[in-house]
């Protein structure tokens, strides 16, 4: 009968790196691809940096990373080299134009787009290693509900769900929220509506999502799901201009409607989400 008691003394294993605190890790995710997730991550990071925060964006979309394209940065050393042990974590971090740091996935990460124990461990090690050095770590995750995306989101204390008003984007956002609530017992998801065509659209969409969730997603008693509408980014031709030029909107035309909206989002995040430095 003593077999069942794992020996409390004798085999003293070294404790693994604690998983917490990951309190200032924000996951930027979306149900559907192409809704501007990476655009939001990069420009939000620039807006937060402008407000004096030390920010890092991690390209957590291992399979189809494109933060490098958005930022027009093609470094020699990337996350891939950290994963394969060819480079140290600090060697892969570089300064992005907007005054924040980035860790780019780099090509070759496709082989790590399956959630093996190795990927889990590396991911955990990297994020835990980054957290102490930044005020905010933004995880630019992939779209959808693949294992890697869900794992990356599970590392974050807050989820920023980017959606556009199109039905497909909303359905996918809804499906993703449903999985996050069902599998990760997440209670709060923050919604950012991109390419909003009229004022109030984002709030209406968030309310609608909340209503359907309340009706169809059974949560455990005492753990209700709450969606928080963080803000809208209006449909703005300047965004397309900046993206095509591969520059940050917050650098080229921060005064355009979308730029102002992103600055407001950063302000709201600062007040509600980002923990005050101790």
């Amino acid at each position: 009968m003593n077999d069942v008691l794992s020996p409390p003394a004798g085999n003293r294993e070294t404790p693994p790196i604690p998983l917490k605190p990951l309190g200032k890790v924000l996951a930027v995710t979306s149900g559907k691809g192409g809704v501007g997730k990476t655009f939001v991550s990069a420009n939000l990071a620039a807006a937060l940096a402008k407000r004096g925060h030390k920010v890092l964006v991690l390209d957590a979309d291992l399979g189809l990373a494109n933060l490098d394209v958005v930022l027009n940065l093609y470094p020699k050393i990337t996350l891939h080299d950290v994963f394969t042990g060819k480079a140290k974590l600090e060697e892969a971090i570089l300064q992005a134009p907007g005054g924040f740091s980035v860790l780019l996935a780099g090509s070759g990460m496709v082989e790590y787009s399956r959630l093996t124990p190795e990927v889990r461990n590396e991911f955990l090690r990297i994020v835990s290693g980054l957290v102490p050095h930044y005020d905010v770590v933004l995880l630019d995750t992939g779209a959808g509900i693949s294992d890697v995306v869900l794992f990356a989101v599970s590392l974050a204390s807050e989820v920023l769900m980017v959606a556009t008003p199109e039905p497909t984007s909303l359905t996918d956002a809804y499906a993703t929220i449903k999985v996050l609530v069902g599998q990760q017992q997440r209670q709060t998801v923050r919604v950012i509506v991109n390419q909003a065509v009229r004022p109030g659209a984002g709030q209406a969409i968030t309310n609608q999502l909340q209503q359907v969730l309340d009706r169809f997603v059974v949560t455990e008693p005492g753990h209700p799901v709450r969606l928080i509408h963080m803000g809208d980014i209006p449909l703005d031709p300047e965004v397309r201009q900046a993206v095509m030029r591969r520059q940050l909107l917050m650098q080229t035309t921060p005064g355009c409607p979308a730029g102002v909206a992103i600055a407001q989002l950063a302000c709201k995040l600062e007040h509600n989400v980002i923990p005050c430095p101790a």
């Binding site: 039905p167 909303l170 359905t171 809804y174 659209a201 209406a204 609608q208």
Partner: peptide
């Protein structure tokens, strides 16, 4: 339910 009403609004 998700976009019935929203669809009309949009």
């Amino acid at each position: 339910l998700l976009f019935g009403q929203l669809g009309l609004d949009e």
